[in-house]
């Protein structure tokens, strides 16, 4: 039964939920809001089932299965977070920001390698540490991006002296600013540790049957991502006279750059660790 769950099942659920969230801008409806949550919940169940099946098939935790699985775990965490926030505060308009990212990740997962990573069998423990640090680090960065986006929307409304749209309830600037700061401050150390653990894994791979090149595109792209985030982190901690809007803009741009780099790396790299499967190519997963 569980084997029949495909990516399409939860992708469709999330897409419907996203459309239902959009209808709130046309007509505010509690029924629609709850329907969106219900569709997201249904999608999450299918999503979980899919990851469990994949994990059993490869005998690897989902995070280590493949880049495809890693992206789906990332999307799964984003959905869990979204549902958690919606249950905590049903008035907040998080779905309109969160669900498109989830859809993007699920769609992107179709274009990357879904074959098990060969090195993982040899470095399972380090692989788990590396993947976990990266997934939470990147999740923090994506959340910082969303929070910055919310900040800019809220700031623009307040500056233009417009009333709050019923369909767009956001946190206050004060809270969004604080959340943004903490997300960057937490993500950068996670990414740093992720990079360090990755370097260690490259070193370990030299002794194994599948050595990884230190100067491969994927490793260099990860280094660039880390560099950008570390720069933002330093600027946040050391900078003075920064307005919340300035911080939000810079965070938004840095996170966007980082995400695009990450996706580009995953879609172009052919090392089967961080990118597509050269053998199977894009869209190999069904």
């Amino acid at each position: 039964m569980l084997d029949k769950v495909s990516v399409f099942c939860f992708l469709a659920s999330y897409a419907v939920a996203c459309l239902l969230e959009l209808t709130q801008f046309l007509r505010r409806s509690t029924a629609m809001r709850w329907s969106a949550i219900a569709f997201t919940g249904a999608g999450l169940v299918a999503h979980t089932a899919y990851l469990v099946v994949r994990s059993r098939q490869h005998d690897l935790p989902p995070l280590l299965g493949s880049t495809h699985d890693w992206l789906l775990v990332f999307a799964w965490l984003a959905v869990v977070l979204f549902l958690g926030i919606q249950i905590w505060n049903g008035e907040l308009s998080i779905g309109i920001f969160c669900l498109p990212v989830v859809l993007g990740m699920v769609v992107a997962s179709q274009w990357v390698s879904s074959s098990p990573i060969p090195q993982m069998a040899e470095m399972r423990r380090w692989g788990m540490i590396h993947a976990t640090l990266w997934v939470f680090g990147i999740l923090g960065v994506v959340l910082a991006l969303l929070v910055s986006l919310m900040y800019l929307v809220q700031h623009s409304r307040l500056k233009q002296k417009q009333r709050q749209l019923e369909a767009l309830h956001l946190f206050s600037l004060e809270r969004l600013s604080r959340m943004n700061w903490w997300l960057i401050v937490v993500s950068v150390p996670l990414l740093t540790l992720g990079v360090l653990s990755g370097l260690w894994m490259i070193h370990l791979s030299k002794q194994g049957s599948h050595p990884v090149d230190l100067f491969s595109t994927a490793v260099l792209a990860n280094a660039v991502i880390w560099g950008v985030m570390a720069f933002l982190f330093g600027w946040l901690l050391a900078g003075r006279h920064q307005t919340g809007r300035m911080i939000a803009w810079r965070t938004l741009l840095a996170c966007l750059f980082m995400l695009l780099t990450l996706l580009a790396m995953m879609l172009t790299s052919t090392d089967r660790i961080h990118g597509t499967d050269a053998a199977s190519g894009p869209g190999a997963v069904s």
Binding site: R157, L158, K161, R163, F171, S172, L173, E174, R175
Partner: peptide, 10 residues
Amino acid sequence: GEFGKGIFDR
């Protein structure tokens, strides 16, 4: 209610 709470949390 409309603007102050959009700026400050508390």
